[in-house]
Design a protein around this nucleic acid. Structure first.
Length: 554
RNA sequence: GCGCCUGUAGCUCAGCUGGAUAGAGCAUCAGACUACGAAUCUGGGGGCCGUAGGUUCGAAUCCUACCAGGCGCGCCA
């Protein structure tokens, strides 16, 4: 609706230019938006004001010229008025609004699908936690944001692949193997000092116990380095499987799990660095290799090969992103914890050195979660192994409430997550507000069926009977659903979907309390059932993007 | 010290990339079930949009400087 109107406005501008009323101007600043005050009409444009300076004319005069040359063969616009400094307010013809209802019912689950993605291949990488322990509450937010964002991009017409990067090549994994080995020896009666950076969680002991059960004490006499390597792989594998299961129960399923180790196969990382060196992006100071990230605006150059000859994490990450591009992705989306923001400049530098645009890698930062219980902070310490796991949150508050709560704020703002509130089935918990709206409509449908009224065919229903202001508000809200989605996609902000849902659910509840859908008037009942069904579809589609169920009963 | 992010109602946060009279939820107060589901609704009170300048037709939004909080500034990942 918005884009159709914008096209009409732009053609009106062109016509004014042709007639010499205004000089040729840049139309890109023209915007169409929904006025805050509904009395101003359905849509408004700033066109006249945006053009005023360039055209050196009074905005109101421009608005009048635009109005005179407004050509609208379909009759989309019922009326135009000029207000304030030069706003043009448009009222859309009623039949175009009513058409939306039919569009929604015909499209069903496809309503809201966009073409902005144009089938472009996009990869969303998220979670990517080391498989050194179970996922905790901090990972949960990133997991949901990444998953919902992937759903959103898919809806927008992108070909989306969700990927988990397994950091299995660094020191952390060795710490894991050493921690398991230590517990293993303890179980077999030895007492040794626990590694300084070891993992102290009980799950390490469980894994060690499994090894004892299966292989007895044969690792006590084996080569220690080899044993640590073996335990790394073994423990990492077990933990990764648990992570996958937790994620699955959280509604998050990845298309790919990519191992950092594979980057080093066939000398992959080193040969890429060599290539970049030939291109002049990498230099040596005799001891170490440096990447000239300052060429691309970073604060200082970054080391890629350490003095001891080992490549840095950054070196592997360059190779990883090169690998991503080589798989044919047009756009990469990385979801990071906000504490990694200092890393963005160097990775963008790498992307550009690899011959891509900075915009080809979009980075979404997710702020830390402040976990509370009944208003009191829950103490957490990763080192001691005492943290609230994703599993515990899932068991306590459930998938839907957890996901919804993580999507209620923009991802880069701090989030208080209160376990007591999240599991409460009350008005303090917004997820039920939205789900209830959906269940409520389903309930109406059931009641209608009981009374022998089937869902009418929208094409044979006189939806013109929907003349109450609340009905028109609902319809307009639904017409804006695709526009809202487009904005969310361009900004990579899923929380907009959550806010939209809240608003639509609110309108539905208000309407429900004021009017009866099923009445003695068969025509009106049919029209209202169509309206309700449309709202149900939009609620369900938006909830689907968030990965939250749309229940028929609660 | 430098860089990034955040300061909006008592609390938690939106504010559609510069638009018209700044919104929602919670909390609080007053109301609505012989009702298609009250996990709901209706109404009231509550604001120097951190402060001070600047940019223009127009600023919560953009630029600058301060103030306050968070996070970065490893040859860790």
């Amino acid at each position: 609706m918005k884009s159709r109107l914008l096209a009409l406005i732009c053609s009106s501008v062109r016509k004014c230019v042709e007639n010499g009323l205004i000089p040729p101007v840049d139309t890109s600043r023209i915007e169409v938006e929904v006025p805050a005050n509904p009395d101003h009409g359905d849509y408004a444009t700033n066109a006249a004001m945006a053009l005023a300076r360039e055209a050196k004319q009074n905005p109101r005069k421009i608005a009048e010229a635009l109005q005179r040359h407004f050509h609208d063969p379909e009759g989309l616009v019922a009326s135009i008025s000029i207000a304030g400094p030069g706003f043009m307010n448009f009222v859309i013809s009623n039949r175009f609004w009513l058409q939306i209802l039919q569009d929604i019912l015909e499209a069903g689950a496809d309503f809201g699908k966009l073409s902005v993605g144009r089938g472009k291949k996009v990869q969303v990488e998220f979670v990517s936690a080391n498989p050194t322990g179970p996922l905790h509450i901090g990972h949960a937010r990133g997991a949901v944001v990444g998953d919902a964002l992937s759903n959103l991009l898919q809806t927008a017409g992108f070909a989306v692949s969700k990927e988990y990067y397994i950091n299995d090549a660094g020191n952390q994994m060795n710490n894991l193997g050493r921690s398991v080995l230590c517990r293993y020896r303890e179980l077999l009666g030895e007492t040794i000092a626990f590694p300084e950076n070891g993992y102290r969680g009980d799950y390490i002991r469980d894994i060690a116990a499994d090894i004892v059960k299966k292989d007895g004490n044969r690792y006590l006499t084996a080569n220690e380095d080899e044993t640590i390597q073996a335990f790394n792989a073994l423990a990492g594998g077990i933990i990764l499987e648990e992570i996958k299961q937790d994620l699955k129960d959280f509604g998050v399923v990845f298309d790919e799990y990519f191992s950092e180790k594979t980057l080093y196969e066939n000398n992959g990382v080193l040969s890429l660095l060599d290539q970049l060196r030939k291109q002049g992006f990498i230099y040596s100071d005799g001891e170490t290799l440096w990447f000239k990230t300052t060429d691309f605006g970073d604060e200082k150059d970054r080391v890629v090969i350490r003095k001891n000859g080992d490549p840095t994490y950054f070196a592997a990450d360059i190779a990883y992103h090169q690998n991503k591009f080589s798989r044919g992705f047009d756009l990469l989306v990385d979801i990071w914890g906000a504490d990694h923001h200092g890393y963005m400049a160097r990775l963008w530098a790498a992307v550009q050195a690899l011959g891509h645009n900075k915009d080809d890698l979009r980075i979404v930062l997710v702020q830390l979660v402040n976990l509370l219980r009944a208003g009191e902070p829950v103490a957490m310490s990763t080192r001691s192994g005492e943290f609230v796991t994703l599993r515990e949150v899932l068991d306590e508050v459930g998938k839907d409430a957890a996901r919804y709560n993580f999507l209620m704020r923009r991802s880069d703002s701090h989030l208080d997550f209160d376990l007591e509130v999240a599991k409460k089935q009350s008005n303090e918990n917004p997820v039920y507000y939205v789900q209830y709206a959906h269940a409520r409509i389903c309930s109406i449908m059931r009641m209608a069926a009981e009374r022998g009224v089937q869902l009418p065919d929208p094409r044979q229903t006189d939806t013109g009977l929907l003349s109450e202001p609340e009905e028109r508000t609902l319809i307009k809200m639904m017409a804006r659903y695709p526009e809202m989605l487009e904005g969310a996609v361009l900004s990579l902000e899923v929380h907009r979907v959550t806010f939209y849902l809240n608003e639509l659910a609110g309108l539905l509840h208000g309407y429900y309390n004021k009017y009866k859908v099923i009445t003695d008037d068969a025509g009106l009942t049919a029209a209202r059932l169509v309206l309700m069904q449309a709202v149900r579809v939009v609620l369900a589609n938006a909830l689907c993007i968030l990965g939250v169920d749309a229940p028929e009963k609660m």
